[in-house]
């Protein structure tokens, strides 16, 4: 048990240490509101992180999540402004995410274009489409119902936090205990063996990307419904944050292993670290450096632990 959850426990310890130190030295960090803001800011990143974990476990990469989030957000906002009921707005965001993810998946799984290339293309193309379509104008003002999802509190915590937790738990179950979940791991750890074992590897790859897109659609709704406008810059750089969290969370960047719980803890650790810089008065220029150091430490630890450096690198097949 200790070994199986080793990475998660390590991050949890780091998280506890950092939060404990902040709570002791910074009385305002202990505040319930501070905790709530950190959990809420982590919620949508965590949901994107679920999809990214699956993609990376399957031996692939998806760097288009930030652009997909912006597309979902801007179209959802436009629809809400046009008077569509919120459930339809949410459904549209999910459908758009699924559609864009499926496009990524189809190009990667069936046309066999490397995922780094496909998602680099969608990252750029979707951003371009946004500029062309919005001409830089933000979507606003939004109707009063827009902020219901993002700002309603249950038991003291905003709805996005609960939905995020539910999504993480559901995904953890699916990945660990269902056939499709195990197939993702099988595909990532050894694609040849997976194929020989009768797994439709193309189908699994396709669905991993499609679900990643769907989760971006969900994350969009958890994120932008907290604000009274949708800015065209939404989601910029999200891929870096999420991939960092996934790697820090213990997912092997070469595929085959990793958990969504680890990713969620990774997201929390990065979120708390960001806040810690402000609370401790550390120059914000360190933020990027610290994130980079996290990646190096996590990946090095991983490679040393698994002895991967002896194997040839295979990535972005």
């Amino acid at each position: 048990m200790m070994m199986r959850w080793g990475r998660e426990l390590t991050i949890l310890a780091a998280l506890a240490l950092l939060s404990g130190y902040l709570s002791l030295t910074q009385p305002n960090f202990r505040d319930a509101f501070t905790l709530s803001t950190i959990l809420t800011n982590a919620a949508y990143v965590g949901v994107v992180g679920i999809g990214m974990t699956m993609v990376i476990v399957a031996g692939q990469i998806d760097i288009s999540v930030g652009s997909m989030l912006a597309v979902c957000a801007l179209i959802a906002g436009t629809l809400a402004r046009a008077g569509a009921p919120m459930f339809l707005v949410v459904l549209t965001s999910l459908a758009l995410g699924l559609g864009m993810g499926a496009l990524n998946g189809a190009l990667i799984a069936y046309l066999r274009i490397p995922s780094i290339i496909v998602t680099l293309a969608t990252l750029t193309a979707l951003r371009g489409a946004i500029v062309w379509w919005t001409k830089g104008y933000w979507v606003m003002p939004l109707p009063p119902g827009w902020k219901f999802l993002g700002t309603t509190h249950i038991l003291g915590l905003p709805l996005p936090v609960w939905i995020g937790w539910a999504a993480v738990l559901a995904a953890a179950y699916v990945l660990a205990h269902t056939i499709i979940g195990r197939e993702v791991y099988a595909l990532g750890s050894n694609p040849q063996a997976a194929r020989l074992a009768g797994i439709d590897t193309a189908r699994v790859t396709f669905w991993v990307f499609a679900v990643s897109g769907l989760l971006v659609g969900l994350a969009t709704m958890l994120h932008v419904t907290r604000f009274s406008m949708v800015q065209t810059q939404e989601g910029l750089g999200l891929e870096f944050l999420v991939i960092t969290a996934v790697v820090v969370g213990g997912t092997n960047i070469f595929g085959g292993s990793g958990t969504v719980v680890g990713t969620y803890l990774g997201v929390l650790l990065l979120t708390v670290t960001s806040s810690a810089l402000t609370f401790l008065g550390i120059s914000a220029t360190w933020d990027q450096a610290i994130r980079g150091a996290f990646i190096l430490v996590a990946v090095t630890a991983d490679i040393v632990r698994t002895g991967r450096w002896r194997q040839p690198v295979r990535w972005a097949r």
Binding site: Q233, T278, F279, A284
Partner: peptide, 23 residues
């Protein structure tokens, strides 16, 4: 204090929250 949102909405929001929460 001076904090940087990197002209990204989410980062700008969270550093503003951090400032408000801290002070």
């Amino acid at each position: 204090d001076i904090r940087y949102g990197l002209d990204k909405p989410a980062e700008s929001f969270s550093v503003a929250q951090d400032l408000i929460n801290k002070y």
